[in-house]
């Protein structure tokens, strides 16, 4: 799960952006989504999640939309979606190259 696995986003960052595509979420809901989506392969820790959310918010990839008690809910921004889809395209291209090489 090293940084080199992704050019711009780490695997955790990519999945966090993915979680926001169709819904607004708080921290624990993001962790639950990622765990379910990856069949428990990736279990985001609160430290990692908090660091990612802070960084995404600072880079305006997500925006805070509600605070209930101590729970914060976020929504993805157009900039966040753009970054997600450009990363997706890059990954698709990687996978396509790999499949082509494997099928030779």
């Amino acid at each position: 799960m090293a940084k080199k696995a992704f050019e711009n986003l780490t695997e955790s960052m990519f999945y966090v952006l993915m979680a926001f595509l169709h819904r607004e979420l708080c921290g624990t809901e993001i962790a639950a989504f990622v765990a379910e989506k990856t069949a428990q392969r990736i279990q985001l820790g609160p430290g990692t999640l908090y660091t990612i959310l802070s960084r995404f918010e600072a880079e305006e990839l997500i925006v805070e939309i509600a605070v209930e008690g101590r729970k914060r809910t976020y929504r993805i921004t157009p900039k966040g979606k753009e970054l997600f889809f450009s990363e997706l395209k890059r990954l698709q291209s990687c996978v396509a190259d790999a499949l082509e090489e494997v099928s030779l």
Binding site: M1, A2, K3, T10, E11, S12, M13, I42, Q43, L44, G45, P46, G47, T48, T51, I52
Partner: peptide, 9 residues
């Protein structure tokens, strides 16, 4: 659950 699941982050 460990605080950090991503060493890079």
């Amino acid at each position: 659950t460990e605080l950090h699941s991503d060493p890079y982050m």
